[in-house]
């Protein structure tokens, strides 16, 4: 790989652009995984013309509670580390 063709400021711009695109790809991947997982958890009936009662709120709650779970798990690990440190 030959980087000498670009001057420093161009290289930085390029890096920023690539970082942003990679973050975008990671975001998409998270959304696909969450949709798949929350669909399996919340949509249990045969698909109708509309969502069944409670399915729409279940989907939004599923995303929020999954993120709550991630934050909660980090908190528990921190607390366990501190109680061991005492």
């Amino acid at each position: 790989m030959d980087n000498t063709k670009f001057d420093e400021s161009t290289q930085k711009e390029l890096q920023t652009f690539l970082d942003r695109e990679q973050a975008q790809a990671r975001l998409h991947s998270s959304i696909h995984n969450l949709t798949s997982m929350c669909w399996d958890k919340c949509i249990t009936s045969t698909p109708g013309n509309y969502f069944a009662r409670g399915e729409e709120s279940c989907l939004a709650n599923c995303v929020e509670r999954f993120l709550d779970t991630s934050l909660f798990m980090v908190k528990v690990i921190e607390q366990q580390r501190q109680s061991i440190g005492q």
Partner: peptide, 14 residues
Amino acid sequence: KCFAKCVTKPSSSL
């Protein structure tokens, strides 16, 4: 795994 096991019906808070 733990979300699947413990949060079976996601509501407005944990």
